[in-house]
Design a protein around this nucleic acid. Structure first.
Length: 497
RNA sequence: GGUUGGUUGGCCGAGUGGCUAGGCUCAGGUCUGCAAAACCUGCUACAGCGGUUCGAAUCCGCUACCAACCUCCA
């Protein structure tokens, strides 16, 4: 397999070989959450997908600057009220208290999913000056106009100047948008329905407000990403990511703002993750078709019959490509739970294996090497985690067969076995970002472990005396306690769960 | 109505022209005191119709259905 990384660029709807702007470095911007309520599972999927992309880029040897913003101002509700303000009003809190509460919650959830923190996590409210400056630039370029203290981006003027580029990301035509666009009260000042606010005049009761050359107001809800990506990654940078639902209008407007302010390209590669569905429909905060991560962790929801840990969910996400929709069902989660545990057991089994072949590999050793190389190769093909994982499971069968004696360790050289351990470790834990979730960790686990040694020792005695009644009674009792006993060739093993 | 993408076996989910995806489930087998696990084998697939081709799940066309976006959303 080639070592070239190719990725699907939404801008051209094609896979392209990735070439960074500056050799060895990657600038990655991902649209982060709006922190006005608890993070939901769809966000988790998107940010986990980009976490794996981030991890893989680093694994490829790139020095990555990963920027993911926190939106704490600017998005309006249907009623025209700022979401942060509304959240604050309902909870009788300062907007910044609302933002803080849900930012902390968001971070905790990212940690639960074992997502690495970005290198920079800028807040929209911390970059008001940059946003005002961008508005000024766009005005100076004649691509925006001020009406009653608000500033609107002039899409028609932009299209004249920039080769009808508005809509190139989402395939939309401005004429069609005009025909279908619905008029909102707050947009009545616009010259064209496609125009969008880059600065909004604050009404008297609006809490979040800043001084600007156009009076008190707040930035438009697409501007933050343009301003902050430019500030931290430059006027042109490598990769911009986000959920599919942001493609239009958010990303389309971002592109227009970048081009409209500095005349430069912004991101060169646009990556979009697909939606998480439940019951075949988009999981969405606004229409209530949703299940919280917490509910999945505990199993307390009418939608599931069991609890699913963060790593089971991460494994579940790995089984679907980031560009495909993922339908959450209890059956699929059950399958993921079992698959994840099989994978982790094989990983544990591998630790006890030593290659016993000569320096020259036998067939099995060669297969192990090929399979792993293929797995990495799949990651080079637009981060194809499902295929990479499929390869890993081919490895799982080999590992278990080597352990069970169906395949011979004489066919594997010691060097190969060492390499396989190291390489699989990197793939599972550094790239996929999985981690072992042993229920028997810590001091309690140590106690349990000692107790189990004793219990299994007693049971081994009973078995040696062919006292099957006692032996089975112990096994059944342990099973009731949630401990599964497995009699193997080389003694008895046990697992929790 | 417009834009974008999708329709694969019992469930989930890869796959872009010929070669076993993979996970889970189910059936049979090996191993085991039995069981579990593990390993081996097997099962029902490519929405429909037409076309291109020596050959199509994979390319083209039409039809049907689904989803996302077009209004805040990852």
């Amino acid at each position: 397999m080639s070592n070239e990384l190719s990725l699907y660029n939404s801008l051209n709807r094609r896979k392209e070989v990735f070439e960074p702007l500056h050799a060895g470095h990657v600038g990655l911007y991902v649209c982060g959450p709006t922190v006005y309520s608890d993070v939901h599972l769809g966000n988790c999927r998107t940010f986990t997908s980009f976490d794996i992309i981030y991890r893989y880029l680093m694994h490829k040897g790139y020095k990555v600057r990963y920027v993911r913003n926190i939106t704490d101002v600017g998005h309006l509700t249907d009623e025209g009220e700022d979401k942060m303000s509304k959240g604050a009003r309902l909870a009788k809190l300062e907007p910044m208290e609302v933002a803080q509460r849900y930012t902390v919650g968001f971070h905790n959830m990212m940690q639960a999913f074992n997502n690495l923190p970005p290198n920079i996590e800028p807040r929209a409210t911390g970059h008001i000056i940059e946003q005002i400056e961008m508005v000024q630039q766009i005005l100076a370029n004649g691509l925006a106009y001020e009406v009653n203290g608000s500033v609107y981006f002039d899409v028609e003027a932009f299209n004249k100047k920039h080769d009808n580029n508005y809509g190139k990301l989402s395939g939309r035509k401005i004429d069609e948008l005009m025909a279908e666009s619905r008029e909102l009260k707050s947009q009545s000042d616009k010259k064209h329905p496609s125009d969008f606010a880059i600065w909004m005049k604050a009404t008297d009761d609006h809490i979040l407000r800043w001084n600007s050359p156009w009076g008190e107001g707040f930035p438009g809800w697409h501007l933050e990403c343009s301003a902050m990506s430019t500030k931290y990654l430059g006027e042109e940078f490598d990769i911009h990511g986000g959920g599919n639902d942001l493609k239009f209008p958010h990303h389309e407007n971002e592109i227009a703002q970048n081009a409209g302010s500095c005349g430069c390209g912004g991101a060169r590669y646009w990556l979009h993750t697909n939606m998480l569905l439940m019951n075949g429909r988009k999981m969405s905060k606004s229409d209530g078709n949703t299940i919280t991560p917490q509910q999945l962790f505990t199993g307390e929801s009418p939608h599931v019959t069991d609890s699913y840990s963060p790593m089971v969910l991460r494994f579940f996400m790995l089984q679907t490509h980031y560009r495909s929709t993922m339908d959450l069902t209890d059956d699929a989660l059950q399958a993921a739970k079992k698959g994840y545990s099989r994978l982790m057991e094989a990983w544990a089994n591998l630790q006890g294996l030593e290659g016993k072949g000569g320096a020259q590999n036998g067939t099995v050793g060669k297969e192990l090497e090929t399979i792993l190389a293929d797995a990495y190769g799949e990651m080079d093909d637009d981060f194809n985690t499902p295929k990479a994982l499929a390869k890993v499971f081919e490895l799982v069968s080999r590992i278990n067969a080597l352990k069970g004696g169906q395949l011979s360790l004489n066919e594997v050289s010691p060097a190969t076995m060492t390499a396989v351990k190291s390489s699989l470790k990197t793939l599972l834990f550094d790239v996929f970002g999985l981690k072992e979730e042993s229920a028997d960790a810590g001091a309690e686990g140590e106690t349990l472990s000692k107790v189990m040694d004793l219990v299994l020792d007693l049971r081994a005695q009973a078995r040696a005396e062919k006292n099957w009644g006692m032996s089975d009674k112990m096994r059944d009792g342990l099973k009731d306690a949630g401990i599964v006993v497995k009699d193997g060739k080389d003694g008895t093993e046990w697992t929790v769960g």
